[in-house]
Design a protein around this nucleic acid. Structure first.
Lengths: 233, 233
DNA sequence: TAAATTTTCTGATAATTATCAAAATATTGA
DNA sequence: TCAATATTTTGATAATTATCAGAAAATTTA
């Protein structure tokens, strides 16, 4: 991890950022008390049990957040993109991390100081409510995910993951290739299945002309059918 | 649902309540703007798609919160006890409910008015932080649960559910009988398995002298072994 | 109380998913 | 570039879990 001082314009002043509507005074407080970190592809950002040092706000790259389950099997809980938070749950729960985070590609994050963040929340009710709302949305996502992962069959789970990746990272310039390149193993860990089954199901989808595969490049061909498969489970 | 005006001492002044440390002024605001509801055993408190009318705080009874998944199959997401919240996620996300709530026994709740609650949060940073912390804990619970439900095998999932029920509702006076009486179907829906499998696994546990069953009464006999089964998955 | 209904239980079978091994490809590093 | 390593693929088999039907028991209702 390469830490350096520097501004973090993107995280704090981005239109989609939760900080966007903060009064200048609060923005300055946060900006004065932040640092930046850079992560190489595959680099561990934090691991289960580590203590949160601040709020990580991803300014560049893609990150997977996962838990180790039975027998060290990995379950990807969520994936972050700029300018989303990473590791915010543990920070606000005042606990150590209960999941690990790894950069899926060259990534950067700005780290907001915990105490400054808390002081802004304490003094700014509207901002506090927006943090609460972020949590409420995240919890809703988690609940939906739990049901999907437990009740859908393999095809449904994989279709759902592909749609999730599309919604999260979008398409390349061709408007059909997913703008994220996961290993088959990561795709399996995202979809709660073994790597073998992810590979098999992926090629079934390709045979059915729902997608086209070129290595880790996945092209969505029949979005409607994928959505149907995801819905029906 | 039988709605009536009345105090809700328990919810607001209970030592374990999130409201306990509020200044009197804020407590009064909340108390002036609340109503009470009573629910019979099996009664629907709200269902997926309903609009939240306020924050339900359970003052008596037990409530299951569940989502309907593929083919109407029910997955119990969490269970509430006094003086916990019911339906707070949707309220703060400003969405309709994405789960349903049913009283498992004679229950009562006080309903705090949304706007009063928001005004207290807005004006009281410390309270806002405690709401944030509640959400962070809940999200942690949800994440752990996702991994458990997806990765553990049937025995592990059932053992885990029994331990969860013990932690949530505790024991009867004999210090070993779970203080909650679920149908086999509810137990299955809590553990992500079919009713048949819940019954079978439950009687296997009884044969192994881990528990003793008397109708819906479940007595924990070997807590340590149950914990081991739950851990190993 | 008796009938009706719901819940619990058991067994047989089918469907789904995981495991494991080995080969084929792709990627990385010296 | 080539060897070493890691990833992807495939097939066969085993393990796990669901489905379904029917009987037994418990509970509710008339």
């Amino acid at each position: 991890m390469n830490t350096q001082e520097g501004i973090c314009e993107l995280c704090i002043n981005n239109k989609k950022s939760i900080f966007y509507n903060l009064p200048l005074r609060d923005k300055l407080t946060l900006q004065k008390n932040h640092s930046s970190s850079h992560f190489k592809k595959g680099e561990l950002i934090y691991k289960e049990g580590d203590k949160p040092m601040g709020l990580l706000c991803l300014s560049k790259g893609k990150v997977k957040i996962f838990k180790e389950g039975v027998g060290g099997r990995e379950q990807i809980m969520r994936m972050a993109k700029p300018t989303g938070f990473v590791g915010f749950r543990a920070l606000f729960a005042e606990e150590n991390y209960n999941a690990s985070a790894v950069a899926l590609e060259e990534s950067a994050a700005c780290i907001l100081d915990r105490d400054s963040l808390y002081s802004v929340i304490r003094s700014n009710g509207e901002f506090a409510l927006s943090i609460i709302k972020t949590f409420a949305n995240e919890l809703g996502f988690s609940n939906v995910r739990t049901v999907n992962l437990t009740q859908k069959h393999i095809r449904g789970r994989l279709a759902e993951s592909l749609l999730f990746l599309k919604d999260t990272y979008g398409y390349e310039e061709d408007h059909s290739t997913l703008k994220v390149y996961l290993s088959r193993e990561d795709l399996a860990n995202l979809s709660n299945m073994t790597t073998s089954n992810a590979i098999r199901t992926l090629s079934t989808f390709a045979n059915e002309k729902l997608i086209a595969i070129d290595g880790r490049k996945i092209k969505i061909i029949d979005l409607v059918k994928l959505e149907k498969i995801s819905e029906l489970g």
